[in-house]
């Protein structure tokens, strides 16, 4: 579903990604872990078509980036630590706007469906600015799936959420992934990542340095694996 070969990203002279190789099969849930400044967000922004690769090949959902970014965008849902929502619009209006931007048909039925999925159907007519951080993040996920994307990208979705809100977000993320979608998520929260993902890749200094799957991980835990691969 996602194929990245020898990806290099430079900002001026600074090299953020140094020949990164990465691939994701359809239906996989990959957690991208790594220290600050490793290039996780930059990498996700390239996959999201928001940033151009300097060198290398990037394929998402069968389309090349950056040449076919318009086709990729139609199949992509992105959630970042910012909600990407308009505070002066209601939950419904926000979804309506993004639905229009993606050319969604049968809009009102779809909006109801999405609001039910993220558990906000009774806040439908309320302004987003009255929402708590957790509710905003759930609506942000609703916004990202409004066009039923095949690939989902989550960039630090737990930032600024308390325990309860994180648990509710877990549920929503699970139901998003359960539909056979391909998911790539970056996170600092190893415990939550361990629960959700089927594969764990460590990104350090601009390349993937280690990778393991949930099955292999049974013997040790993720934290040990994470520390081990960063020290190596």
């Amino acid at each position: 579903m996602i194929e990245v070969k020898k990806l290099v990203k430079r900002f001026g002279l600074k090299i953020i990604l140094r020949g990164l190789d990465f691939s994701v099969e359809p239906g996989e849930f990959v957690a991208l872990l790594g220290p600050n400044g490793a290039g996780k967000t930059t990498f996700l922004r390239i996959l999201a078509t928001l940033s151009r690769p300097s060198l290398g090949e990037v394929k998402v959902a069968g389309y090349n980036l950056p040449a076919q970014s318009a086709q990729v965008r139609a199949k992509l849902g992105v959630v970042s630590h910012l909600p990407l929502l308009y505070p002066d619009l209601t939950a419904e209006e926000n979804l309506l706007f993004y639905g229009r931007m993606y050319g969604v048909e049968n809009m009102s039925a779809r909006i109801t469906e999405v609001l039910e999925m993220v558990g906000l159907e009774n806040r439908r007519k309320d302004l987003v600015r009255t929402f708590s951080r957790g509710m905003q993040q759930r609506l942000a996920i609703g916004r990202a799936v409004i066009h039923d994307p095949e690939v989902m990208l989550f960039d630090e979705p737990y930032t600024g959420l308390d325990q309860d809100a994180s648990e509710m977000l877990d549920e929503v993320l699970r139901s998003v992934a359960a539909k056979g979608r391909t998911v790539v998520m970056t996170s600092h929260d190893l415990a939550r990542a361990e629960d959700l993902a089927t594969r764990f890749d460590i990104l350090s200094r601009g390349v993937i340095t280690a990778s393991t799957t949930q099955k292999k991980l049974k013997k040790t835990n993720l934290l040990a694996f994470y520390k081990e691969s960063l020290e190596a």
């Binding site: 999201a48 078509t49 928001l50 318009a70 086709q71 965008r73 139609a74 992509l76 992105v78 970042s80 910012l82 909600p83 990407l84 929502l85 308009y86 505070p87 993004y98 931007m101 993606y102 050319g103 916004r143």
Partner: peptide, 14 residues
């Protein structure tokens, strides 16, 4: 402020 510009850029529109 809330990253909405990214939201616009993510949409499959010109």
């Amino acid at each position: 402020d809330r990253g909405c510009m990214d939201g616009l850029l993510l949409a499959p529109v010109d």
